[in-house]
Computed example of a mutant assay.
Amino acid sequence: MVVTQAVRRTPTGFAGRRALGFAVAFGVLAGCVALSLAIGSKGLSIAEVLAAIGGSADEAGTIVRELRLPRTLLGILVGAALGVAGAVMQAFTRNPLADPGLLGVNAGAAFAVTAGAAAFGLTSLGATVWFAFGGAIIATVGVYLIGSAGRGGPEPLRITLGGVAIGAFLAGITSGITLLLPEVFDRMRGWNAGSIVVAPPELLAWVTPFVLAGLVLAAWAAGPLNAVALGDELAVALGSRIVRTRIVSIVAVTLLCGAATAAAGPIGFVGLMVPHAVRWFTGPDQRWIFAGSAVAAPVLLLASDVAGRVVLPSGELPVGIVTAFVGAPVLIALVRRRRVSGL
């Protein structure tokens, strides 16, 4: 039995702080959902949105039910997947800068999808999902092996450098393929920027089971990852099975990143920023961090998506570009913090 009393001993009053944090996060998420349903090329009032959800047959009902509601649901799914994937990666690598984008996982999925489109002309969502899974797991395992090479086991610095190198390498090949093959470029350019604009019902039907499976595995691994955070030797002494925990963590990250990337393209920085933010009110317990990330990450993604709809005089800015604008300064701030390594 894994002992995790160290993370259960929270300061006096911390439970109230956690409850307040989750209440605020759920409230902000509800507000973002309302804005996502109301704001667009045609603005709608809250009354019109409620009537549309209730089944009104006017133009507003068509806009909300067929366009904005699926888009909002996809944003919630993709946001939760990326947020929890980032938290899992930070926990099992003990690297506070771990992120599906920064460690090359998104780049691996994007490369596999682009290569599949170029070599086999894949267009179906089912094929895209499986190629994204393959690229995600290869990139995840490759980065972890690079970071674990040599004495001392996995080190955060080696993992980060390996992820950046693999991500840049795969991104370069992906760009080369799309430039050499114009038909692939036309097919992939919107997807490569990271977007949740297109959300047909079959997309939600494909993505949801994989995201839910990844969340379940992440929840299972949260307890053992509390012990892993104390170091491999102490984790083994406490009864934690390190290899099994890391395998489950890798599978969870693969399912979450593969499904999110297949559905919305490579969206960076969500998994980096959100776990650090939720630690302010959850504390160091990975179980609460994962739960907080599943709530707070959709807030960031939906808010970025809404901002992308209104920031340009005409047209929309893909959500992946908006999160990059927000995430780059956050990454710089995290790197400059002296206590950034304290997970």
Rank of each mutant, 00 (worst) to 15 (best):
T114M: 02
A60Y: 00
F26S: 10
V184G: 14
W191H: 08
I289Q: 14
L37F: 06
L50W: 06
S148T: 11
V236L: 08
R336S: 09
P156W: 04
A328Q: 10
R8T: 07
T128A: 05
L37W: 00
E66S: 09
A219S: 13
V295G: 11
A118S: 14
V211K: 15
V306S: 14
R94C: 01
L302G: 09
E183P: 07
V105W: 04
E155K: 01
L74F: 05
V322A: 13
R241K: 10
E202H: 14
R18W: 03
A132C: 02
A227M: 09
R189S: 13
L255T: 01
A6Q: 13
P284F: 10
A171W: 14
A296I: 11
P266C: 10
H276A: 04
L122A: 02
G126Q: 03
L180F: 09
I53L: 15
L204S: 10
T261K: 08
V78Q: 06
A19H: 08
E66C: 00
G163Y: 06
R339Y: 07
G134S: 03
R246S: 03
A307E: 05
I177C: 13
F281Q: 09
G327F: 07
A119N: 02
A291G: 08
P224I: 04
G126V: 00
D285T: 13
K42P: 01
G134F: 04
L161M: 14
Q5Y: 13
G27L: 08
S41A: 14
A262L: 12
P200V: 01
V340T: 09
V295L: 11
L343K: 07
A227K: 02
R309F: 09
R337H: 11
I138K: 01
G108M: 04
V248A: 12
K42R: 14
L103I: 00
L215Q: 05
L50G: 04
T10K: 08
A34N: 01
